[in-house]
Simulated scan of single mutants.
Amino acid sequence: MGETGTTNAASQLLNVAFSLLLIIGLILALAWLLRRFGQGNFLNQQSMKIMASMPLGTRERLLVVEVGGQQILLGVTSHQINTLHVFDEPVVDASGGTSTDFKKRLMALMNRAPASDTPAPETQKQKPQ
């Protein structure tokens, strides 16, 4: 009786090990296929790059995207993507750093004057009665 119990346990262990190897092989094959034919090619696109990103809220952000050598400012929310501005000349260099006047250009785009470094004037104090 002892010999059949050992043989049965050994065959079950061999079945489990083979099943695990088969599952790992399937995962690796699917990952290779996905990278080869799926999203992997999209992520390696050189013609479209996200140059800069600035979060505005939990689900909103600004993106500077370079497409075909032209940089575009996009507003991204959870429901839509809007083109805010198409820049005539690059505002973000290829190394990922922003140019010094990006803030000025963005403020001009938004038709706002840049905030000054001087504090706001004090409000008049009320006279005690």
Rank of each mutant, 00 (worst) to 15 (best):
L62M: 05
A115V: 11
V16N: 06
G75A: 07
G25I: 04
Q45K: 12
P128H: 07
L84A: 14
L56M: 02
T6G: 13
Q71R: 01
G25K: 15
L30I: 12
V86F: 00
F42M: 15
R61H: 05
E3H: 08
K127D: 13
T83N: 06
W32I: 09
Q126S: 15
I50K: 05
T98M: 07
L28K: 15
N82E: 12
T4L: 15
M51R: 05
Q71S: 01
L21E: 14
K125W: 05
R59D: 06
L106H: 04
P128M: 15
G5H: 13
S116A: 13
E122P: 11
A108C: 03
L62E: 05
L14E: 07
P119C: 05
L22K: 11
L14R: 09
L73V: 00
L109A: 02
G57C: 01
R61D: 02
V86E: 03
Q39W: 05
N8L: 12
Q46K: 14
T100D: 13
R105K: 12
R35T: 13
P128F: 11
V91E: 00
L43I: 14
A10R: 10
G2M: 09
E89W: 06
I27R: 11
N111Q: 09
Q46Y: 04
K49V: 05
I23T: 08
K104N: 12
S53R: 08
W32L: 08
A120H: 15
A52P: 04
V65M: 01
R59Q: 13
S53A: 14
L62T: 04
D117R: 12
F87R: 02
G5D: 08
T58H: 07
A31M: 15
Q129G: 07
K49N: 14
F102R: 02
A115H: 10
L13H: 10
Q39L: 10
L63M: 09
D117V: 15
A31P: 12
T83R: 13
A108Q: 04
I72D: 03
V92S: 00
G57S: 10
T123K: 13
G40I: 00
P55I: 01
A115G: 11
I81R: 12
V64S: 00
A29Y: 07
N111D: 14
T123L: 10
P55K: 06
S99G: 15
Q70M: 07
M48V: 14
N41H: 09
R112C: 04
T98F: 14
G5A: 08
L13M: 15
N82D: 08
E122D: 10
